[in-house]
């Protein structure tokens, strides 16, 4: 007896139910908590689609970090909620929106059912060339060799987004510390967790990074874990956010992209193209890029969650 259909069917039903619920429920706080749950369920769907790398990313970023971000926002916006909720549209607007959204879904469903057989795929090409990268994980090979440009630009996206977030700081707080100040409750629950979990998280993160070359995992998942651990320590009040004017913070942000660019340009004389790796050196170079990126991603993600500077620096 095969239980896969049962698992898949229930999973799809649950995902859709929670998704509809996060849209329908009145209370925003409940909706964002629901969204975090939804992210975790979606990660299970990714496992069922044999995309463990995506599952890890979805669980860490989709469920975890996005959840934290939205929950914090929901708490801060709670007082305004009833006011804005009064702007709810008329029933016929809702009906029209439902019909149109349904039409889009229907069209997509038809497209899904008519996708060509056999499905086009680049898997054979990846398999053919993966040996030259020395990597065992095809997803990592795509991210850091075949489509390294996307990955480089994505690191740039994170930096741009952070610059954009920082640009929102009120002038008087420019250069100061992001987010509110968190008081340490020495015997509190959060401090309890924040003392125990981060060291374990660091070991797991480095594990995820290290096996990423050959098994599911890599710098994004590892960086996200590190960011989560740092955030935990900050929110428990065990440590404070650095001021955004500090040079080491800025250097930490761009190190990943800078190393990526330098190795990329070194590829021009040594491997014949920008972002190419010399024969036999691909794997160590990729690991160097990933290690640098992991740290930059961790710092950037954590600072993105914390938001623009809201406090003046101490000095």
């Amino acid at each position: 007896m095969n239980m896969a259909p049962l698992v898949d069917g229930s999973l799809v039903v649950l995902i859709l139910a929670v998704a509809i619920w996060t849209i329908a429920v009145r209370d925003s706080f409940a909706a964002v908590v629901g969204y975090a749950i939804y992210g975790l369920m979606l990660a299970l769907a990714w496992v069922r689609l044999a995309a463990i790398d995506a599952a890890l990313t979805e669980a860490a970023i989709g469920g975890g970090l996005t959840g934290v971000l939205l929950i914090r926002a929901a708490v801060r916006l709670r007082p305004t909620e009833s006011v804005v909720a009064g702007d709810s549209p008329a029933w016929f607007v809702k009906a029209l929106a439902a019909v149109l959204a349904g039409a889009v879904s229907l069209a997509l469903a038809v497209v899904v059912l008519t996708l060509p057989e056999p499905a086009p795929t680049l898997a054979p090409q990846v398999a053919e060339h993966i040996a030259s990268t020395g990597l065992g994980n095809a997803v990592t090979a795509v991210l850091l060799a075949f489509r390294a440009t996307d990955t480089l630009l994505e690191a740039v996206v994170l930096v741009f987004a952070l610059i954009a977030v920082w640009s929102l700081a009120p002038d008087r707080f420019w250069g100061g510390r992001p987010g509110q100040h968190y008081h340490l409750e020495a015997n509190g629950m959060l401090a309890y967790l924040a003392r125990l979990l981060p060291p374990l998280g660091i070991v797991v993160a480095i594990y995820v990074f290290w096996v990423g070359a050959d098994l599911p995992g890599g710098k994004f998942q590892a960086g996200t874990l590190l960011a989560a651990m740092w955030l935990l320590a900050i929110m428990a009040g065990l440590t404070d956010v650095p001021e955004v004017r500090l040079v080491w913070v800025r250097i930490a942000l761009v190190t990943g992209s800078a190393v990526f660019l330098i190795i990329g340009f070194a590829g021009v004389p040594f491997a014949g193209a920008f972002l190419a790796y010399p024969e036999g050196y691909a794997k160590p170079l990729i690991l160097i890029i990933e290690a640098a990126s992991m740290l930059s991603i961790a710092v950037t993600l954590a600072l993105l969650v914390l938001g623009p500077p809201e406090r003046r620096g101490q000095s």
């Binding site: 044999a50 995309a51 995506a54 989709g62 680049l122 898997a123 795509v142 489509r147 996307d150 994004f220």
Partner: peptide
């Protein structure tokens, strides 16, 4: 699965 879209999904999520 085809690793190319799998990799792009990771980029997309970020």
């Amino acid at each position: 699965g085809d690793p190319v879209p799998q990799a792009l999904v990771i980029t997309g999520i970020v």
